[in-house]
């Protein structure tokens, strides 16, 4: 276990989040240089251990590590590790024995990164553990709002869609509310987690009413495959009508709104192609900010270590 690990957004307090936001701003300046690279983590090795397919997040961490001059190794295996006769414990201990300085872990199972953290003394960064948490996503979301709107305190965010199965929701709601934002969630009851009334959010049924007061509109990915397994929705068509950010809904949003999506987008489902052209759309900025935020997180996890 390492006290430099980042497993949950709750591992951070307001000061810790501010530090990451400021560092991220500093690294944004690095990215604009002709040679966008600093030697901060030269000689350190970061292992990206991905038990679930996620090219975007893995590349983002890899670029972040390389901008800091760290060496990176990638381990990718999808599906159940046990079903393949592969032990998560053995995989991690093997990489640990090779001399890795930090683990970036993505796994389809909630709590996997926390388990890994219990097995090694090096920092572990949670890059998404099932429907549980995705803390670097939360931090890049916060940085994105901050860069668009300055002080985030008091801003109103409407988060729309599948809260129940979303690690982004669990982490980003935590980060936004910790920094003083108000969050409402809009979703059919079948996509809300048990105990949502204990969360620091308002639950709204009608999206259009909620959008009227929103400073930030956060659309979550709707997994089309889910409907086949579990009848959470009668049809995607009905979902889009009730909760999709259609072109028509996007037209009613003011230009200063911050329109976000964690990617990858289902264009035409939760978000219409036209909506991504809205001046408020910050989806590519989120991706870019993901690099600087992950640079900040890796720097804090590994910087200054012997």
């Amino acid at each position: 276990m390492s006290d430099r690990s980042l497993l949950s957004i709750d591992d951070l307090d307001v000061a810790g989040i501010r530090e990451i936001v400021e560092l991220s701003d500093a690294f944004e300046e690095v990215l604009r240089r002709p040679i966008p690279k600093v030697p901060a983590l030269r000689g350190r090795t970061v292992a990206n251990v991905f038990f679930e397919d996620s090219t975007r997040t893995r590349l983002s961490f890899e670029i972040a590590a390389k901008r800091l001059s760290a060496d990176t190794v990638n381990f990718t295996a999808s599906g159940s590790s046990l079903s393949k006769g592969e032990s998560l414990f053995d995989t991690i201990r093997t990489l640990h024995a090779m001399g890795v300085d930090a683990f970036v872990v993505r796994h389809r199972a909630p709590g996997a990164a926390r388990r890994v953290d219990g097995w090694v003394d090096t920092p572990v960064i949670n890059a998404g553990d099932g429907a549980h948490e995705h803390p670097t996503q939360a931090l890049l979301d916060l940085v994105t709002v901050h860069r668009r709107r300055g002080d985030v305190e008091g801003l109103r965010c409407v988060m729309v869609g599948d809260i129940e199965h979303s690690r982004v929701a669990r982490s980003t709601i935590g980060a936004f509310t910790m920094m003083g934002m108000h969050v409402s969630v809009a979703a059919p009851a079948t996509l809300l987690p048990t105990g949502i009334d204990d969360w620091p959010v308002d639950v709204v049924e009608d999206l259009d009413t909620a959008l009227e007061k929103a400073d930030v509109v956060y659309m979550l990915r709707m997994q089309k495959e889910r409907i086949a397994r579990d009848p959470v929705l009668p049809s995607l068509r009905e979902y889009v009508a009730r909760y999709g950010l259609t072109a028509e809904r996007a037209r009613r949003l003011p230009p200063e709104v911050v329109l976000m999506h964690p990617g990858p987008m289902n264009r035409g489902v939760e978000i219409a192609p036209e909506a991504t052209e809205h001046p408020g759309a910050a989806i590519e900025e989120q991706v870019r900010n993901g690099v600087t935020v992950r640079m900040a997180v890796l720097y804090l996890a590994l910087g200054g270590m012997p």
Binding site: G130, H132, P193
Partner: peptide, 16 residues
């Protein structure tokens, strides 16, 4: 299902 369906499962993202 992974654990009791309740406030904790909702928070942890484990199916109830």
């Amino acid at each position: 299902a992974q654990m009791h369906e309740g406030r904790v499962s909702g928070r942890l993202g484990l199916q109830g």
